[in-house]
Amino acid sequence: MGWERPLTCEDFGMKPSDFHEIKESEIPKHTMTFDKHATGAAADQKHYQKAEKEPIEVMQMYFTAQELYGFCKGNALKYILRSRFKGTELKDMEKALQYMKWSVDVLHGVPIDPRK
């Protein structure tokens, strides 16, 4: 694309002061476990199980691999950047992780199955 300069937080409407520095005392010392049913993953949400074809599947049919990869990568970034502000940080990070997995699948040429 030939970007003239690296992106900064200002490009996303943020200031350096908007970022929260994580203190050592804020990092959990125990092993984290997640309730599988509490995730934001498509496979765990009933409303994603109703349609014959999910939007991500339709995108796979009509988008180039590059377009699909960009979509997945962009959605991961969106969930990461907004996660602190909605009160659903864990779910948003799980959704970002789902989109990152799908972006890796695209790079490997593996079809995305939103039901898994």
Rank of each mutant, 00 (worst) to 15 (best):
residue 15 K to P: 00
residue 24 E to D: 15
residue 52 E to K: 11
residue 92 D to W: 02
residue 115 R to M: 07
residue 16 P to R: 05
residue 110 V to Q: 12
residue 30 H to D: 12
residue 12 F to T: 10
residue 7 L to E: 11
residue 45 Q to D: 15
residue 71 F to D: 04
residue 39 T to L: 03
residue 12 F to R: 11
residue 72 C to N: 13
residue 48 Y to H: 15
residue 96 A to V: 11
residue 115 R to S: 11
residue 31 T to F: 01
residue 71 F to H: 08
residue 63 F to S: 04
residue 116 K to L: 09
residue 74 G to R: 11
residue 51 A to Q: 15
residue 49 Q to H: 08
residue 94 E to F: 06
residue 77 L to P: 03
residue 56 I to Q: 01
residue 82 R to V: 10
residue 59 M to Y: 15
residue 69 Y to M: 08
residue 98 Q to I: 00
residue 10 E to Y: 11
residue 9 C to N: 01
residue 50 K to D: 12
residue 77 L to W: 08
residue 24 E to P: 04
residue 91 K to V: 02
residue 44 D to M: 15
residue 45 Q to E: 15
residue 33 T to Y: 08
residue 111 P to W: 06
residue 19 F to Q: 08
residue 50 K to Y: 09
residue 17 S to L: 00
residue 60 Q to S: 00
residue 28 P to C: 07
residue 30 H to E: 15
residue 62 Y to C: 03
residue 14 M to W: 06
residue 67 E to D: 13
residue 54 E to P: 00
residue 101 K to G: 09
residue 32 M to W: 01
residue 92 D to T: 05
residue 15 K to E: 11
residue 13 G to M: 05
residue 82 R to L: 14
residue 103 S to K: 06
residue 90 L to M: 09
residue 6 P to S: 06
residue 78 K to T: 05
residue 33 T to M: 04
residue 82 R to F: 14
residue 68 L to P: 01
residue 12 F to K: 09
residue 88 T to W: 02
residue 21 E to C: 13
residue 38 A to H: 06
residue 3 W to R: 09
residue 48 Y to S: 05
residue 83 S to W: 01
residue 49 Q to F: 02
residue 63 F to M: 11
residue 49 Q to I: 02
residue 10 E to W: 03
residue 37 H to S: 13
residue 112 I to V: 00
residue 89 E to P: 01
residue 76 A to L: 04
residue 103 S to V: 00
residue 73 K to D: 13
residue 114 P to D: 08
residue 50 K to N: 08
residue 98 Q to F: 01
residue 35 D to E: 10
residue 98 Q to Y: 02
residue 113 D to C: 08
residue 107 L to R: 08
residue 12 F to M: 14
residue 112 I to F: 02
residue 34 F to M: 12
residue 88 T to G: 03
residue 45 Q to M: 15
residue 3 W to N: 10
residue 94 E to K: 09
residue 51 A to T: 09
residue 93 M to S: 10
residue 33 T to W: 05
residue 33 T to G: 00
residue 21 E to V: 15
residue 33 T to V: 06
residue 94 E to W: 10
residue 88 T to N: 14
residue 79 Y to D: 11
residue 9 C to F: 03
residue 80 I to M: 12
residue 18 D to G: 01
residue 70 G to Q: 12
residue 51 A to W: 13
residue 12 F to S: 12
residue 19 F to P: 06
residue 56 I to E: 03
residue 67 E to I: 08
residue 34 F to H: 13
residue 47 H to D: 11
residue 113 D to A: 05
residue 66 Q to K: 13
residue 16 P to A: 06
residue 80 I to C: 09
residue 101 K to A: 12
residue 23 K to V: 04
residue 66 Q to W: 05
residue 62 Y to D: 04
residue 30 H to A: 09
residue 61 M to G: 10
residue 113 D to Y: 07
residue 51 A to N: 12
